[in-house]
């Protein structure tokens, strides 16, 4: 494989990833434009860590994550993944973006996914045991009786009992369904799990249970998480590092403590200040954001955030700021990242 990742501690490295969806019109479905859902983003996920990916709806975080694991074909860019399937050590590095689909299949064993909606992500016609077993079947690893034990083990790992095996998804509560989805994700013993808003649809008291479960499983199965969410406090709780997206671009990446207390991008600052705080005596000082999120098929020139940014200057209207490293492990895509005094959370 020509691809390589320099840092042996990195599991997945995304380089200049783009995903454009064509807009088609007319009888012959001619392409009249593109929605730039993911527009040139780069990030890396280190082995054993949790990278939180936050942003508002439509910012492309889900598309970015799904393209990164080749559920969607990328328009451009590279996704380097370190596979440990054959032996130990540093493993082999593959470029998921360039791999023929046929050769993707063995790698799918190492990357799993958990979805937001615990109802839609489980086939209502299949029993729990069939659902958890399916990944094993697809990879020809269903060995009958032995697999029954395997499935039971997975269910007990996520806190479900073996009596639940022959039941159907509709017989479970939201939290339990999410556990079934997690058990399915674990079935092939992946190294990387993409968690796409895994707790957003759950009740407050069930969120805590599920977050704890995810942390326990990460430790037990040596997992790396890409955690996509819009809830800043949930992301802060579970992540090691946090990446912020806005209209298909990465605006800031930093270790969570650093990002929350010392944001270096005005959008991050506004996002943090908008996040409601369950602390009536110390409300956050809100930074008002004017206007709407731009249309990703027709974004403004320069920095996409400039029409809503209170620090915007002329250069912001014309030049696109690149994501540059500004401190230890801290990157921001703002022309004034070094000079602005931004308000974080205490």
């Amino acid at each position: 494989m020509p691809a390589s990742i320099e840092d042996p501690g990195v599991l997945l490295e995304v380089r200049n990833l783009k995903k454009y969806f064509p807009i088609r019109k007319g009888l012959l479905r001619k392409v009249v434009g593109h929605i730039k859902a993911v527009d040139d983003i780069s990030f890396e996920i280190r082995k054993g860590e949790t990278l939180g990916l936050v942003g508002e709806s439509g910012c492309g975080k889900t598309t970015a994550a799904r393209t990164a694991i080749r559920l969607y074909d990328p328009t451009d860019g590279a996704v380097l993944f370190r596979s440990h399937a054959n032996g130990s050590g540093e493993g082999e590095v593959y470029d998921l973006a360039a791999l023929p689909l046929r050769e993707m299949k063995p790698l799918r064993r190492e990357i799993a996914m958990v979805f937001q909606d615990p109802i839609n992500s489980l086939n209502p016609r299949m029993s729990v045991s069939d659902i958890v077993r399916e990944p094993l079947q697809v990879h020809g690893m269903d060995l009958g009786r032995e697999t029954d034990d395997e499935v039971q083990g997975l269910l007990s790992a996520v806190g479900l009992r073996s009596e639940h095996m022959e039941r159907y998804p509709h017989e479970f509560s939201g939290g339990q369904r999410q556990r079934i989805g997690i058990a399915r994700a674990l079935a092939l013993r992946p190294s990387l799990i993409l968690l796409d808003e895994p707790v957003s649809a759950l009740d407050v008291s069930i969120q805590a249970q599920t977050l704890n479960l995810l942390q326990d499983l990460q430790e037990e199965f040596d997992l790396t998480y890409l955690f996509v969410a819009h809830d800043l406090s949930v992301v802060e709780h579970i992540s090691d590092r946090v990446a912020v997206m806005y209209v298909g671009r990465m605006v800031e990446v930093a270790p969570k403590r650093e990002l929350y207390t010392n944001p270096r991008h005005p959008y991050t600052e506004a996002l943090l200040s908008a996040s409601p705080k369950p602390d009536p005596r110390n409300p956050t000082v809100r930074i008002p954001l004017v206007g709407q999120v731009p249309d990703p098929s027709n974004p403004p020139p320069g920095c996409y955030f400039h029409p809503r940014c209170r620090y915007a200057e002329d250069v912001c209207r014309t030049e696109t700021p690149p994501l540059v490293t500004i401190g230890e492990d801290h990157a921001s895509a703002c022309h004034f990242a070094d000079t602005l005094e931004l308000q974080g959370m205490q």
Binding site: S233, H237, I238
Partner: peptide, 23 residues
């Protein structure tokens, strides 16, 4: 309920307290 929600800056490395069971 108040203890089970994650709070920014207050849950560093800790587990959340949960309400057992479900509704």
């Amino acid at each position: 309920l108040l203890r089970s929600i994650p709070r920014i800056g207050q849950t560093e490395g800790s587990r959340l307290e949960v309400i057992e069971g479900m509704v």
